[in-house]
Design a binder for these strands. Structure first.
Length: 813
DNA sequence: CAGATGTACCTTTTT
DNA sequence: GGTACATCTG
């Protein structure tokens, strides 16, 4: 706390009224509408900002921060501003800086819940029996650790799959339940053993001096609850608190906030109950719904003017969401024109849906039906479940339409990156057992299960880390030739790397610097600089460990990509002072944004789309069972259905100009063809704002043609009844589909066979495919080739995506 | 110890 | 259908 001057902080706490007018004329205030302005100017006391989709929420939030600073009400380090994602934090930082000009010093306490908790926890680690250099485990580590515990406890892995156990524990942590606080009812519902395992897991984490993501919050809450002096100190420091996406907070986060805001109550929460879509991961809509009860006298401000979408799109979204109960209620309005109606189209199956959207995207590029031309990067396809993306990827690959997938496996989650990181972790701290386990036999060193078990036994018997245990094992000559030699080599490497990794003062990356808290690892300060830079060291580690070679020798098609990723990893080290700082960053950040010049359609889940906007949005797969998802409804009933409906609302409101909803009568799920009925949410779209494109012959001319739309009251009632499956709209659709002969697929159309591409091959040819690697042609069928791939097995592939094996060097990708 | 076959599983996902 | 993981076999 050394350099923080509390008296100065208090001086800044003089009430606003007594301070001079704004330091500078606050031109930014003129940019706001009345509601936004109110939200910005109500600086003191609790404020709840209910910000509908596209109503300038971030603008209000960032302007509020700027206003706090500009009026001298608070200093940058007195504002605690929390977000959920790093992206949101980054954006907020940028926008505040832009509002105030370049002169603002960084805001040290603007960040994600987790990043802020890391800073706090490093400071007070000893209060929860940790050392301040604790490591942060990601989900993968967590699961491997749990697996060990499950096995050690002699519990059937089938009964408690580590993955499931991790979920259960996460849920408990989200609710801020320590092992001894898990309610008996809850524990009984699962299994007593799960609680015992949870307790054991926590104990093990402590021994390893490690925390998982949930702990970051939970430990800090525990510290605040048990040490009033510490809490008091932070209440004085964080004089103004701002929270983004408040509807997504879980119980632990809620407690954390309430504790911190408890004194001065200067807390401003921004959120939208209609966009709460993370209930399944512990978010409590209840937090936002009862804000006024938690903070009596709170100012509630509604941002309702929408600047994003056309009137038709807004009306469609409002129509859907109005079927939900227990909303705080907002009415979005816009000055914008009606624009295009929301388009609705039905398809025979998922493939046709993908084909239609592909064609539509191409047509939109030219401008169709009097609409302006839309570039691909103005368009997005938002799906409910990620497996829906395959149909689109297949199709776009075939027609060569550029696309990008958001939210796939991230860079830092890839196998090769995690392996490399494990080596780095060992260099930083050789007693990182989890890292050691990961790489003992990667690359293959002839150290299989048996050898690894011996190491475990040696370590446990001597109460030391695995690296030490391995040394003991070797000294005792308890391991045979080949493996022993490789192990000795690895251990020598770790020692060498560790010596080289002990660098100078350990700090966070510059942009994450904390003004008054030293985040560095204890004990490393003041050491002389190493001879090699951490970048060279990283290269050496990968080289000497044989890891690079391992992938060089690998002949699978993805090996080159992995080597490329490793290079990228080393390059990423450049922006850090040392390996420790880098590891810390990666544990919390894990994002991977590649910007590419070429315009591409964006393909992502509805969840990933929250907070984004696109001129044109496609919402495929609106079928009951898929969306709303059957599972959501089965597991949480009406609550789940309502969350699905909010997801629909989020989807529609992503669109600025054009929103296209589609559904398919048949879809292949888990390899089985299944037919489905249009989503009940389709019935909830107000007919006046929808244009039905469904081709005649399918669904009898389309939705709305047969019967008048159900009255609103009926919709409402239906949503809350248990027999939602028997809705009038449903029966209507069902009847229609039976009458109109849904069993006939539409005529196949536009089957363009690229004969040139096919004629280049004959049976038996060796070929190369970008994704599947090498193989031999076994059959030719239309424009498709059947190929027996060496690694990937037999596949049917469109001829133009395959080249003769000889010319594999210049593949057309 | 490694590759090869067989068998259960299958939302949404950030930190 | 396709993947991740466990068990079987060379």
């Amino acid at each position: 706390m050394s350099s923080f001057d509390e008296s100065e902080a208090f001086e800044a706490a003089v009430p606003l009224s007594q301070r001079a007018m704004a330091v500078r004329p606050a031109a930014y205030l003129d940019d706001l509408n009345p509601a936004q302005r109110e939200a910005v100017e109500a600086l003191e006391g609790p404020v709840l900002m209910l910000a509908g989709a596209g109503t300038g929420k971030t603008k209000a939030l960032t302007t509020r921060i700027a206003h706090l600073l500009n009026t001298g009400t608070a200093r940058p380090n007195e504002i605690l501003a929390v977000t959920f994602t790093n992206k949101a934090a980054r954006e907020m930082k940028e926008r505040v800086a832009r509002l105030l000009g370049q002169t603002v010093e960084g805001m040290p306490w603007l960040g994600t819940f987790h990043a802020i908790c890391v800073k706090l926890l490093r400071r007070h680690a000893e209060l929860v029996d940790l050392k301040s250099n604790f490591t942060i485990l990601d989900t993968d580590d967590q699961i491997r650790l749990l697996k060990q515990l499950v096995i050690a406890a002699g519990i059937d892995e089938k009964r408690w799959p580590p993955r499931l156990l991790a979920n259960v524990i996460d849920n408990w942590k989200n609710r801020a339940w320590l092992p001894d606080a898990v309610p008996a009812a809850e524990a009984g519902a699962f299994d007593r053993k799960a609680v015992a395992l949870y307790a054991e897991y926590q104990q093990r984490l402590r021994t390893l001096n490690a925390v998982d993501f949930g702990d970051l919050l939970l430990h800090v809450v525990t510290i605040f609850q048990r040490h009033e002096d510490v809490l008091e100190q932070y209440r004085r420091w964080f004089r103004y608190i701002l929270v983004d996406e408040y509807q997504d907070t879980n119980v632990a986060q809620y407690l954390w906030l309430r504790l911190l805001a408890g004194g001065h109550r200067n807390i401003c929460c921004v959120g939208d109950d209609d966009q709460s879509i993370y209930g399944w991961r512990g978010a409590e809509v209840g937090n936002i719904l009862r804000f006024e009860k938690d903070f009596p006298g709170a100012t509630v401000i509604r941002l309702e003017q929408n600047y994003r979408s056309t009137a038709h799109i807004l009306a469609a979204a409002s129509g859907v969401i109005s079927a939900n109960t227990g909303r705080l209620g907002k009415t979005l309005w816009t000055e914008a024109d009606g624009g295009e109606k929301v388009r609705l189209i039905g398809h025979w199956d998922g493939e046709e849906e993908a084909r239609w959207i592909g064609e539509e995207l191409e047509a939109m590029g030219q401008g169709t039906r009097g609409m302006r031309a839309m570039a691909l990067d103005e368009c997005a396809i938002l799906v409910r479940a990620s497996h829906q993306m395959r149909a689109f990827e297949d199709r776009f690959l075939t027609i060569g339409l550029p696309y990008k997938v958001i939210g796939g496996p991230r860079f830092y989650e890839r196998m090769e990156i995690r392996d490399a990181m494990a080596y780095f972790r060992l260099a930083v701290s050789p007693d990182d057992d989890l890292a050691f386990e990961r790489i003992v036999n990667t690359p293959k060193r002839g150290l299989g299960d048996k050898a690894q078990q011996k190491i475990q036994v040696a370590a446990r018997a001597n109460g030391v880390s695995l690296v030490e245990g391995a040394k003991i094992l070797l000294a005792a000559k308890d391991l045979s030739g080949k493996g022993a030699k490789a192990l000795a080599e690895l251990l020598a490497g770790i020692d060498r790397w560790h010596a080289a990794a002990l660098g100078p003062v350990v700090r966070m990356p510059a942009d994450d610097d904390v003004l008054d808290l030293e985040v560095g690892m204890a004990g490393a300060a003041g050491r002389a600089g190493p001879q090699v830079s951490h970048i060279e060291l990283a290269e050496q580690i990968l080289e000497e460990s044989g890891y690079t070679e391992h992938w060089q020798k690998d002949k699978t098609p993805e090996a080159p990509g992995r080597l490329e990723n490793l290079k990228e990893l080393v390059k990423a080290l450049e922006s850090f002072d040392n390996l420790q700082g880098f590891l810390e960053h990666v544990a919390l950040i894990m994002d991977n944004e590649t910007d590419d010049a070429e315009a591409k359609v964006t393909l992502m889940t509805l969840h990933a789309a929250k907070g984004l906007e696109f001129p044109a949005v496609f919402l495929p797969g609106w079928e009951d069972g898929l969306f709303p998802s059957q599972r959501a409804m089965d597991e949480t009933g009406l609550k789940g259905l309502e969350e699905e409906r909010r997801l629909a609302y989020v989807g529609i409101t992503r669109a600025e100009e054009l929103c296209t909803i589609s559904f398919a009568a048949n879809r292949r799920i888990y390899g089985q063809w299944q037919s489905a009925l249009p989503s009940r949410f389709i019935d909830e779209l107000p007919e006046a704002h929808v244009e039905v494109l469904t081709p005649p012959g399918l669904y009898g001319g389309g939705y709305g043609a047969a019967a008048a739309p159900a009255p609103r009251s009926d919709l409402h009632e239906r949503a809350s009844r248990a027999d939602v499956y028997n809705s009038p709209g449903w029966k209507r659709m069902q009847a229609r589909s039976e009458v109109r002969g849904m069993s006939q697929p539409r005529e196949t159309r536009n089957v363009v066979i690229d004969l040139d591409a096919v004629s280049a091959f004959t049976e038996g040819d060796r070929v190369f495919h970008q994704k599947f690697g090498y193989g031999a042609v076994t059959a030719i069928e239309g424009d498709k080739l059947e190929i027996a791939f060496d690694k990937a097995g037999a596949k049917r592939v469109v001829a133009k995506f395959v080249v003769p094996a000889a010319s594999a060097g210049d593949v057309p990708f």
